[in-house]
Nucleic acid binder design. Sequence first.
DNA 1: GATGATAATGAAAATCTTTTTCAATTATAG
DNA 2: CTATAATTGAAAAAGATTTTCATTATCATC
Lengths: 154, 154
Amino acid sequence: MSASTTPTLEQQWLDQLAQAGYRPTAARRVVIEIVLNTCRALEPLEIFTLARRQHPKLGLVTVYRTLETLEALGLVQRVHQPGGCNIYLRAFEGHQHLLICTACGRAVFFEGDDLSALMERAARQSGFVVHDHWLQLFGTCAECRAAQSAPLPA
Amino acid sequence: MSASTTPTLEQQWLDQLAQAGYRPTAARRVVIEIVLNTCRALEPLEIFTLARRQHPKLGLVTVYRTLETLEALGLVQRVHQPGGCNIYLRAFEGHQHLLICTACGRAVFFEGDDLSALMERAARQSGFVVHDHWLQLFGTCAECRAAQSAPLPA
DNA sequence: GATGATAATGAAAATCTTTTTCAATTATAG
DNA sequence: CTATAATTGAAAAAGATTTTCATTATCATC
């Protein structure tokens, strides 16, 4: 192993936890691994179920607690969807917006922060000072469109 | 009372309920009145508490059911905020976006649908077909800013 | 490596929110 | 008024999340 190997994302997250005074436990490793390897937002219970395959004595409470910690560190974010708002997705750097496939749940990020004109106009109209904004797009991803138009034969 | 009086909003909502086959009951009237007279999104339990002042034997279940019905008719909408996602606000016509005061909860609507360029770009980048979008702004309203800068004397 | 201090865990219980069930009540059409 | 069907409210059930607490795992120090 060369000394200059780039650490994996999982290791980077564990390092961030360590810097913040949290210990790198087996439970946290498993939750982190699942969040990093899934391209859609997951419910705590889903994470728990997946995680138990690798770490059978994991408790659901620990999943809740780990997600809370990761969210506080800005590593995961809570996603809001019509079907529920307690699902978690890894967070990305900078201000990015989400595009979610309503068929499979896949979430992709995109940049596009030319909302300033819109926000200024809203502020002027309303008398508010605008601090923050949420933008989310919903659609169908290429894979799901393909699956719809070419269903598997009986 | 002249025959050409514009019906109140409450009456318009009750008419819409009637057209959809729902009966104008006391419970529904009270819930509607509260939603129409509040400028911020309310939780079911808040509506229940307020409504019981006028209609003491109202049940919380009925509040849930009434909100569900009003949402199905497009008269109220569920609002998503960092502090919770089960709060309801009257819906407005057309596609409008919300601006919410993070201090007092006041919600105002604004139009501003020049997001098409942004959505097209996101679609191109991602390969998604975009169906829908959510945009919400968060800020501080004029009243809350005034209250912050001029606190009441001891 | 041992060891003591402290963080973290998991099971159970407690809390809260929302939904379901069902008998009693209320509104409506006739 | 009366029959019919929708609506209601109370209680119970179901789910999701949080709290409690004894046990276990990690870390810094020896």
